[in-house]
Nucleic acid binder design. Structure first.
Lengths: 147, 147
DNA sequence: ACTAAACAGGATCATATCGGTCCTATTTGC
DNA sequence: GCAAATAGGACCGATATGATCCTGTTTAGT
């Protein structure tokens, strides 16, 4: 299936929600309610997103979260990396030499290339794209052409 | 991490091995031994690859497996699909309307676009590319340019 | 015809990761 | 000082993955 984790999916939801009103700062509570997701989970995600410096947090009463950068300056790839770690389709592609099979080493570089290709695809989609309702075929076509 | 399953990784190993000698037919046993993988696992994989019609099988004594098509006619994407099912980064992107959150529906089409982009990347790499040792920068560069 | 090699198709089981929750600080506005 | 919020871990239950095994069915060779 090659899917991202549900957590990551939620995280993009949270980020997209924030991107819809870039000025506004929202509490975890507000976001959870807004997205119809359980608060503990959303809180958990926001912590990771903060550590990744994709959002900035304000502590204390009246605090909350806001995007650390403009929506068009944050890619989907970054959100994925923040939650799941580096995008590498195989262990091999990460770079560490866990290749006990010398045969697969021949294919290692190829996996790195593939991972890189996927990374490029994910980096080309930014939060601002996620906010924009894809009426017609604007995003998909521009993407397809880029590929 | 956005990684493919270990099984899928093995599967590409198996397919790549077969692609190295497209004429030759090999038994599950031979392949397992050749790749240093447990036989039951390899056998399991070969069944799925057969059902996906990526390899053709010959039953009975002296039987074995061979590529169903030429190495350059089989993409890495197909191998992934054969083992993991359709490439869709989120449930949403599969098409079924499991979106209980109307908010996320706005992002659904975007996920489909992203999945499509990843799919294109994976389809552009064929078994023949995996066989070729990536000396210099032939594959990576041609890929990067295509992106 | 019989036997052994080899694939087909499930069913099964352990384990690791994921998703979700909770508890205890620490910070800050009122 | 109190309440609102984030920070940082620790903690389980469910789920899916990885690996194995068992029982057919097919076929080559003797």
């Amino acid at each position: 299936m090659l899917r991202i984790s549900k957590l990551t999916d939620y995280a993009t939801g949270v980020m997209t929600r924030l991107a819809r009103e870039p000025e506004r700062s929202m509490s975890a509570q507000q976001l959870a309610q807004d997205l119809g997701l359980p608060l503990p989970t959303v809180a958990q995600l926001l912590k990771r997103l903060t550590r990744a410096e994709l959002v900035h947090s304000v502590r204390g009463a009246g605090g909350g979260y806001g995007l650390a950068r403009l929506p068009q300056a944050i890619s989907v790839a970054e959100v994925i990396v923040a939650i799941e770690g580096p995008v590498a389709l195989t262990e091999c592609a990460l770079g560490e030499g866990n290749c006990t099979l010398e045969t697969s080493c021949a294919t290692r570089a190829n996996w790195q290339v593939i991972s890189q290709a996927v990374r490029v695809a994910l980096e080309s989609v930014r939060l601002s794209d996620m906010v924009a309702p894809p009426h017609g075929v604007p995003v998909s076509m521009s993407m397809a052409r880029r590929l």
